[in-house]
Design a binder for these strands. Sequence first.
DNA 1: CAAGAATGATAATTATGGTTCTCATTCTTG
DNA 2: CAAGAATGAGAACCATAATTATCATTCTTG
Lengths: 207, 207
Amino acid sequence: MELPGVNPARQKRSREMTEALLEAGKRLLARRSLAELSVEELCASIGASVGAFYSRFQSKEAYFQALQLLACRRATEALAGDGAPERFAGRPLAEICLAIAKGGVGWMRAYEGVARAALQHGGTHPARWTPFKELGREVQERWRPLLLARLGRSARRRNERAVGFAFQLLYGTMVNIVLNDPGPLSLGDPDLPEQLARAMAAALRGA
Amino acid sequence: MELPGVNPARQKRSREMTEALLEAGKRLLARRSLAELSVEELCASIGASVGAFYSRFQSKEAYFQALQLLACRRATEALAGDGAPERFAGRPLAEICLAIAKGGVGWMRAYEGVARAALQHGGTHPARWTPFKELGREVQERWRPLLLARLGRSARRRNERAVGFAFQLLYGTMVNIVLNDPGPLSLGDPDLPEQLARAMAAALRGA
DNA sequence: CAAGAATGATAATTATGGTTCTCATTCTTG
DNA sequence: CAAGAATGAGAACCATAATTATCATTCTTG
């Protein structure tokens, strides 16, 4: 695995430490923002030293980019494997929406901290957010044909817009949950995927 | 107007400067995050000095809290005046939802920068977000009775949850637009309130 | 129109935390 | 089992930006 801004480790100990640093970041970011997570604290948490960190990662920002890239890679893999849209071709709209929502929520649950950190400066620090935005676009593109197929042949233009808005509802609600957890539904709520799916389906049907 | 963390100005010039500082913050935050907006830059933008700033505001954070409080105050006023829910009692569900969505979007448009800054550290810096969360709760509480009245008498519990989720969709989508503007609809899009209202209504009906 | 309070300009202070440096230690490999 | 590369500990360095201190200027008011 080659990541930009990350000097490849040639010795085993170093590879393990790199891995541990990435794992620790994923864990610690569940509680602090990236700015609040100092390199020193990060290293201390796994008994490494700052020097070690910088002999591996070109900068704190590069470290975070790597973290983010790994999270996105996992999602892309899922999109090609178990969660592949093709498996739902021909299924009813409600079922497709549920699969989409489950996939999204599941991923968010796994990468909550990384996602939050990336989101926190999405608007002002575009580079930090780009991989996630890219991922969102990719997911939507993969599902779109199936949704359009369920939506009748007329008003193609309008239907496409409806698909975009359905995803906007999905992503928006999830983002707000991750950032602010306003309730009533939280990320851990078992009903969440179902509710989101219902909202998406309604938005699509009502187009 | 007394604001916590703000030393009241006793001379006119100073009052004007306080006002100008708050106004400048509202404007500048449209482009940068709060962290990126240095006190020095803020002051320079209106030809004031850092010392002047600190003779008025106890800290940068207090300054931002004041900014936020003013924005919330405006919303609360609107809720008591033109945008009062009571004016829509007895109207159809779709119309009520549209009024809600219009109110929310309109407010976001007016206070986009302040809202974004508050949102950016909502999760990790609870104090910064609290007034907004409070406002959201208040808005929802004011509209809830009208919505429930439109939703049939049975399954009260379920209906209340549906109202909560409808607002979660609304707020979530708006928050994500403000933070990341993912499209297809942007904050400035004339269709936005209508689309959001439709989604809310669908979520409510499908409860 | 003074006297004293309020204000504000400027420069110093400080805290934080990312980044770099140095050198001892540990691997790898011929 | 050396020799040289890779690694890592720890401290030093530095940049940024919030905050505070000092003192001249401007208001207010009796």
